[in-house]
């Protein structure tokens, strides 16, 4: 039986894992390659690296991070952030990533999804989507871009379907309402998208305890779930989370290289 995936997300700036802290900007919390390795040993199913570097110099550092990760972990991983052209996609895929994720850039230029899918296959192209609850929209959710700062006219479900039609092989639904709250995923938007498209949907934003993943895999109908701060500070290991999910009767892979491995 196909298992629900637990995916760890790492934000990377200038080659360091970083975390946005309210009123303080970003704080570096570690080496992404080391953190990726720890997650791998704990049995994470997949990893996502978001490059939040703005400079061209930082882009080069990110490619080097991707290359080092690929040499040490033997599971799929995705790279997002600042991907604007199919040449940007090619650079991270050649460095060893399986997938690239596009978000605001795809809203501005949807053709990048089609061109990327033609060139690298649908399985390599992930649409990241930030959704905000809005009762005026047909699905109840509006697509926002630039990290939630800019509203678009797009309905979340319609955009997800359009991205699938253009060739996206997977969709990450990040709830701006839930993001950073640690109160749980936004189950409704996850369910609306996950049951409305034919490609896998990854829930993102709001995970605080392992039970939140149980909810989003059942009531939210998600195929996979992103976690970040839950594991970044060693509060939970990936295996702690998976144990709770497995105990709830949800199929999940329980075989890390060293499932008992310590904190990320």
């Amino acid at each position: 039986m196909l298992q629900k995936r637990v995916i760890v997300c790492l934000d990377v700036r200038d080659g360091k894992t970083t975390k946005g802290v309210r009123f303080e900007g970003n704080v570096d919390i570690g080496d992404p390659v080391e953190m990726a390795r720890a997650c791998y040993e704990q049995g994470v199913d997949e990893l996502v690296f978001y490059d939040i570097t703005a400079s061209a110099e930082g882009r080069g550092i990110m490619i080097e991070v991707v290359r080092r990760v690929a040499e040490q972990i033997f599971i799929p991983f995705c790279v997002g952030g600042g991907i604007a052209t199919t040449d940007d996609m090619r650079a991270v895929l050649l460095a060893g990533a399986e997938k690239v994720s596009v978000n605001s850039q795809a809203v501005r230029n949807p053709r990048i999804i089609r061109e990327g899918a033609r060139r690298f296959g649908n399985q390599a192209i992930v649409l990241g989507m930030d959704a905000l609850a809005d009762r005026r929209m047909p699905s109840g959710y509006r697509v926002v871009i630039n990290g939630g700062r800019v509203q678009t006219d797009l309905d979340a479900l319609e955009w997800a379907r359009e991205a699938e039609r253009l060739g996206a092989g997977e969709i990450v639904v990040n709830s701006i309402d839930a993001d950073g709250t640690r109160d749980g995923y936004e189950l409704e938007v996850t369910r609306v998208i996950a049951t409305g498209v034919g490609v896998p949907v990854v829930a993102s934003g709001g995970a605080g305890v392992p039970g939140h993943l149980v909810e989003v895999f059942t009531r939210g109908a998600a195929d996979a779930a992103l976690v970040a701060s839950m594991v970044h500070y060693g509060e939970y290991t990936v295996d702690d989370i998976k144990k709770v999910v497995a105990d709830a009767g949800i199929p999940v892979r329980r075989q890390g290289a060293r499932p008992e491995a310590g904190p990320v």
């Binding site: 039986m1 995936r5 490609v199």
Partner: peptide
């Protein structure tokens, strides 16, 4: 066939 679930079959399976 589409009754199997989402296609592609993507992820970890036993």
């Amino acid at each position: 066939p589409s009754e199997c679930g989402k296609v592609p079959h993507m992820g970890w399976n036993t």
